[in-house]
Amino acid sequence: MVRSFPTRKLIHQSQLGVVDFESEDTWICATCRACVARCPRGVAIIDIMKALRSVVVGMGAGHVPDSLRVTLKNIAGTGNPLGEAAEKRTDWAKDLEVKTFTKGTEILYFSCCIPAYDPNIKRVARATASLLNKAGVSFGIIGARESCCGESVRKAGNESLFQTLAQSNISAFSENGVTKVVVSSPHCYHTFKNEYPELGSNIEVVHFTQYLAELIREGRLKPTRETNLKVTYHDPCYLGRHNSVYDEPREILRSIPGLDLVEMVDHRENSLCCGGGGSRIWQETKKGERLSDLRLDQAVATGASVLATACPYCMLNFEDSILTSDRSDVIKLKEISELVLEAL
């Protein structure tokens, strides 16, 4: 166990109107959705946590963790959580042949801010784009006009910033005539698919694992290079529990010849969270309280040499966990698109 926080107490306090604005507990929930999936009474616990946070944020009083405050400021100012310049958003694609999205392009590839800017995770966007190129897909990127999807901003209780971001993205999509978008992040996927429609968006949203599985099924991509890797797959909460995408990532991994896919103790519906959802990714989690450390233990216990996943936040958290627990020689972290690219 890493730590507990009393959801029931928070909800009950809110009912009674005695919310402790200074409490750290308000910010612990990683919105992994395990509680909602289990709650027999159908309580929308995540929505309540979100509402609670928006009250704390909206009042201007109370404790908002510092790192989160900085991130939100970055997003409000530059459109990305890292505070980088918008013009640099397409830098990851510089030496790759990635076209700018124009009218008539079939698919928009929306990389998410982290693969766009984070020096380590850029490889995810690069691998995905390379795969799309190899399959001959008509796709493009928008670049500076796009901003953070706002999923975790909303979960952090900053509804107005979310609305601004969403409106900006929706108009960027519609100005460019986007009808279908492929995303790298399950968080972008979730908000584009389930939350943007409230604001008038009607584009088709596909997670890249779904798209990749389709490309492989159709034979447009053929992983042929034999490998002897033992791989375990971590279900990102926002892909699995939130959107029930469990099979496609596994289908892709199994299509790689020689790859041995093993499951961790908790998988699919019961998967553990990496701890990065619900804006936790922008907050500091003390060592000893990190869910990703627990999850890494489970992954190592399977005897796998590669931990595969399909979410930039999970990537960030597991990179940290592997480094801080000094296990980089035991297990490698790979995004699914990287594994497929290596197998071509």
């Binding site: 999936a37 289990r38 027999p40 159908g42």
Partner: peptide, 10 residues
């Protein structure tokens, strides 16, 4: 208790 009872999720 309540395995398959009083459970809206199931």
């Amino acid at each position: 208790t309540c395995v398959g009872s009083r459970d809206e999720q199931r």
